[in-house]
């Protein structure tokens, strides 16, 4: 027998499918929804529907956007000679927050992982290469690809795979540096990061 009546049980089940939500949180959310006024629920449903209806992949960089091409690809102030490759749209957001990168992006929506069944064909990678040839309409040449995949074995493999394909085209390929978080004290850095920071040290 179900502990809750069917509509409630179903809502709890749907919440539980969301990442980071377990049984207890799902129950709390479901009962919160039950207490909401009708129109708030309508707004919520509408927001969910709209996000699925209006958000598409940018045809150039694969970013999630409601206008195609996305705001970065269509902006005249971005530097078209650089493309930064990231795994997920929220990685782009992290880089944008620096306000120091003015180039374009390319979002893979994942990283290579044979165990999870993700090979190059499962990544949104193939549409990177047309972007690298100069005969695109804006005519500006891509001079550098910055690979900002995660510092995990999967992220490294992805970086390496892309570098092997791009380098022969005569385009500079760089990998973001790994090491110390800035503004923190040396003593708070874990040994693994410290070790990496030491081996990636540079002359000043």
């Amino acid at each position: 027998m179900l502990e809750y009546s069917e509509p409630v049980a179903r809502l709890i089940d749907e919440f539980k499918r969301l990442p980071g939500i377990g049984q207890k949180s799902a129950q709390r959310l479901a009962f919160h929804v039950l207490r909401l006024p009708e129109e708030r629920v309508e707004d919520f449903v509408e927001a969910l529907r709209q996000v699925k209806e209006k958000i598409v992949f940018c045809s150039s960089c694969n970013n999630l956007t409601d206008v195609d091409p996305c705001q970065y690809c269509s902006s005249p102030s971005r530097d078209r000679s650089m493309i930064c490759v990231v795994e997920e749209p929220y990685n782009l957001v992290a880089i944008e927050k620096t306000r120091s990168y003015k180039g374009l992006y390319h979002i893979l929506h994942g990283s290579l992982s044979p165990i999870r069944g993700i090979g190059p064909d499962e990544l949104m990678l193939s549409n990177l290469f047309p972007r690298l040839s100069t005969d695109e309409e804006d005519g500006e040449e891509v001079k550098e690809i910055i690979i900002a995949t995660n510092p995990t074995t999967e992220g490294e493999a992805t970086a390496n795979y892309i570098a092997r394909l791009v380098k022969p085209l005569g385009i500079r390929v760089t990998r973001i540096a790994m090491g110390m978080p800035v503004g923190s004290d040396l003593e708070f850095v874990d040994e693994v990061t410290m070790d990496k920071a030491l081996s990636n040290r540079h002359e000043i």
Binding site: L112, P114, I115, E154, A157, N160, Y161, R164
Partner: peptide, 28 residues
């Protein structure tokens, strides 16, 4: 890396992926 590589090798064997393609996938 070993686990990922093993999986890749097993898939390649099962799908009879051409050798040059397997090499490109193995390289990273």
């Amino acid at each position: 890396v070993i686990r990922q590589k093993n999986k890749l090798l097993q898939n390649a064997r099962k799908d009879e992926t051409p050798a040059n393609k397997v090499e490109a996938l193995l390289a990273p």
